[in-house]
Design a protein around this nucleic acid. Structure first.
Lengths: 402, 402
DNA sequence: ATATCTTTGTAAGTAAAATTAACTTACAAA
DNA sequence: TTTGTAAGTTAATTTTACTTACAAAGATAT
């Protein structure tokens, strides 16, 4: 029996979260308006708001206009009333930031990994966090970490991060003990999804959403009813190694024909290099070894036939994969982020077309695929945003160093 | 803002559901034990139980043994205190049943569809329900309908059922108006999933579970945290038309290489017929046109090479699809139901092996694939069980004709 | 056999929190 | 200046779970 019992405290917490979320989603808003939106009564809202004012999370910022009655007192979130630390452990460099409640970066630290792994990599994490925590931003309410690899968020465990040679590392516990702050770890694609959802704007509360992060690797973050779905082991969304081509190219994971070998950023570069001799008319073919993502993007933009073939092929396989997700989940909103989105509209159109063709038309109806709005900041924002998404009540906890 | 506010009533309903669920999951249980499991206090449990006794949902059935204190009074669910009507609109025949709270069938009606569609098919539904409701089982608390096709459960709408020529038919509303009973419609695979989960035994509360129904068509029901996940349009789990083979056979949906054309019951028969001439050593090859599922099952059991090839191939592609689900959802528990499970252990082993090979090993770890326990009753049981799964409070509503 | 300890279940009173209803304040339009 | 209305607060009420206390019933030790 995993379901929690309901108590008055839970009730209050729920309604408090509801009010805070409503304030969060509006620029400014009056108590009466909150009452209308949440369907709570005005006295209840007043009660909650008073507490939020006391906690400093919300402030009165003036009066609004009226159409024949008392003017409403406008409230708004005090965006600098709490700070969070975000960490993104990307392949080449670890970067971290102090972020406020609106996702504004107040301080930043980045350090190249330079091949470090194991304890040395962990030391690098400590170094970044030592610096960020010593800057004096208060109160800090939590640490969020996004990292490639297989993560068990519930246990705060890095199950397997190949590049860093981490296996079953209880990173959350380690950081929690060292910095005395609540710590969440998640996959970087999941973090990017949350970042997009929380700070991207235009997403409805409790929506279903799939954000697919297409870089060298390909991963998805799945939001169900506005919450990150992670599956039993925290690995939900690991679509980069779904086989989409029988007997395809060998993937670094050992299998053949993984999505990553067909639609990822590294894959298109390698394929362009391989196909260079077959398409001598392309300017790219002159120097196959110098093909980079940048040069491919430029070539694709100018209609280079080699780039066209490779990039549209990649889009095709991504589309097939998305079609699988559409059929499996029947989620109607897809957002793409990551390096590959640099190929722009034509790439996106190709993805859309394949998806549509490979899906039952009744399911494809109403499904949208768009490019994300939060760009590179997604992952780092998302890491801290899980704090908000999963448990607003963290905002009410005074951290040990405020 | 779709989240509901919390009130005292909601709190009470929640705890009432919690207690009832606990009684449901136990054969017999005392108040004190309920309190321990739910973490509610004994007085609170007593209060709720008193109401349940009053409603007739629960009864005292004797005393249990003690280890040094007053003997507990044992409670149990009164399984015949409420009845539900289940309907399964299968391809060849519609069947319906009156079912009690433990899933025991009290009455049954079945009628061949005989090619009827449109309004005539609807008339058939009415006829079955008219009969079942006139039998006098009281109180009836709801109707559950499982049907092939694309269903929008939230709206109670049959979006598209090709065989019956129904499009955007608001069946739930129609039945609700006619019989004055709360009505739920869902896809038959989703119903089978719920049936397995609720009545299969051995499933934990709030577990994640995927039940794949492999018959002529192939569909999955996805349970997340013990609740049916249906996606935005109700079509989640429609995996039969996910493309698993580029340029494969033409499917009735218009695409090529759909899972259904490779791993479904009709597909294996057709493939066996096609390959008969190439495998003359097989006894099946003598009369290709007479190959049926029955004969294939027998042939496969006796190691016939033609049957082997076809069935293990089907298992392979099912395994590939499941691998996709494992990667996407990272749900660790899979259950297979439907005709195809008749191929037994060797088929299951082949599915397992392919799934394991086509998944990242860290994700495959801990994933189990088994054959369902509720067999053919799954769909019909599930249709009514949604009533319980989604909203125990229905049990507290007095229906109009009790 | 008696006393003691445990467990179950109930009763009475308390505390928390949302609701209702009434009221004050403020403002726009006529 | 009057009227109508909206915003926000206050106080009383209601709902519901919790705490405390206790009686009944049974097991165990002396």
């Amino acid at each position: 029996m995993a379901i929690k019992k309901a108590t008055h405290q839970e009730t209050k917490k729920h309604n408090r979260d509801l009010v805070l979320k409503t304030v969060f989603e509006a620029e400014t808003i009056s108590r009466a308006e909150i009452a209308r939106i949440t369907r709570l009564t005005r006295p209840t809202v007043s009660d909650v708001v008073n507490r939020l004012l006391l906690e400093g999370l919300v402030q009165e910022v003036g009066v609004g206009s009226s159409i024949g009655g008392k003017s409403p007192i406008l409230l708004s979130l005090v965006k600098d009333s709490r700070y969070m630390i975000s960490l993104n452990l990307a392949y080449e460099q670890f970067c971290g930031a102090v972020v406020n409640l609106r996702g504004e970066v107040k301080a930043k630290e980045a350090m190249p990994v330079s091949g470090r792994n194991g304890d040395q990599a962990l030391g690098l994490v400590y170094e970044i966090l030592d610096r960020l925590t010593s800057l004096g931003w208060k109160p800090l309410i939590g640490i969020g970490v996004g990292t490639p690899g297989l993560i068990n968020t519930r246990e705060g465990m890095i199950v397997n991060a190949v590049n860093l040679d981490w296996k079953n590392l209880p990173l959350a516990k380690l950081l929690q003990n060292r910095y005395h702050l609540p710590t969440h770890i998640m996959n970087d694609s999941q973090a990017a999804a949350i970042g997009e959802y929380v700070y991207g704007g235009g997403y409805k509360a409790d929506e279903n959403l799939v954000v697919i992060n297409v870089r060298q690797g390909i991963g998805a973050g799945i939001l169900i009813n506005g919450r990150l779905f992670q599956g039993d082991g925290g690995g939900a969304g690991e679509i980069g190694h779904v086989v989409v081509q029988e007997n395809g190219l060998q993937c670094r994971c050992g299998k053949r024909g993984c999505l990553e070998t067909l639609a990822g950023a590294r894959a298109v570069i390698q394929r362009a290099q391989m196909l260079a001799s077959a398409t001598p008319s392309s300017p790219l073919a002159k120097n196959p070894k110098n093909i980079t993502l940048d040069s491919l993007v430029d070539a694709f933009a100018s209609g280079d036939p080699l780039a066209d073939q490779v990039v549209l092929d990649a889009a095709h396989y991504l589309g097939v994969s998305i079609a699988g997700l559409v059929s499996t989940l029947n989620i109607q909103k897809f957002v793409l982020t990551g390096d590959m989105t640099r190929f722009g509209q034509r790439w996106l159109d190709a993805v859309r077309e394949t998806t549509s063709n490979a899906t039952l038309s009744k399911l494809a109806e109403g499904t949208s695929i768009d490019i994300g709005k939060v760009d590179y900041r997604g992952c780092i924002l998302g890491a801290s945003a899980l704090t908000l998404l999963d448990d607003y009540s963290l905002l009410f906890m005074r951290s040990s160093n405020d």
